[in-house]
C-alpha cells in the first residue's frame, strides 16, 4: 500500500528536498508551490495520508489550508505537519491551536522530518 503525502511550500529548494527525502519505498509525494493550489487538490482528490505545510505562502497561507482541512469531513483526521520559519513560542502554540499534528521549524533536518512522517504513517 502506497502512502500519499501532500506538501506545499513556495521555496523551490525546500520543496525539492522534502519531495526527494519523502519519496520512494511505500510513499509518493504530490508537491505544490502555494496554498491555494494545494487546497484545490485536497478538495478534489482522495484524502492523502499526510500533509506537510509551510505557513508563509502566496494564495493561501499554511494556517488557512490547515483550518480548511480541519473543517472538511473527509480530511479532518489527516495528520498535518507544519514546516515553517515561524518558530516563536506563540507561533507554535497557534499552529497547534489551529489543529496541526506536529510542528517543525526551519532551518530543518530532512532526516528528522522523515522520522516524524514515518511515525505518523505507522
Amino acid at each position: 500500500m502506497t502512502h500519499e503525502i501532500v506538501i506545499a511550500d513556495d521555496d523551490d529548494t525546500i520543496r525539492d528536498i522534502v519531495e526527494f527525502k519523502l519519496s520512494g519505498g511505500d510513499r509518493s509525494v504530490t508537491a505544490f508551490e502555494n496554498g491555494r493550489e494545494c487546497w484545490e487538490y485536497l478538495e478534489s482528490s482522495d484524502p492523502p495520508d499526510l500533509i506537510v505545510l509551510d505557513i508563509m505562502m502566496p494564495g493561501l497561507t499554511g494556517l488557512q489550508v490547515l483550518e480548511r482541512v480541519r473543517e472538511a469531513d473527509s480530511l479532518s483526521s489527516v495528520p498535518v505537519i507544519m514546516l515553517t520559519s515561524r518558530g516563536r513560542e506563540e507561533h507554535v502554540v497557534e499552529g497547534f491551536e489551529r489543529g496541526a499534528t506536529d510542528y517543525m521549524t526551519k532551518p530543518f533536518s530532512p532526516n528528522e522530518l522523515v522520522a516524524r512522517v514515518s511515525s505518523r504513517l505507522r
Binding site: 529548494t13 528536498i17 532551518p107 530543518f108 533536518s109 530532512p110 532526516n111 528528522e112
Partner: peptide
C-alpha cells in the same frame, strides 16, 4: 549560502 540557511543536521 542558500542551503546552509535552510538545513541543519546531517545535511548541514
Amino acid at each position: 549560502d542558500e542551503y546552509l540557511r535552510k538545513l541543519r543536521g546531517t545535511e548541514h
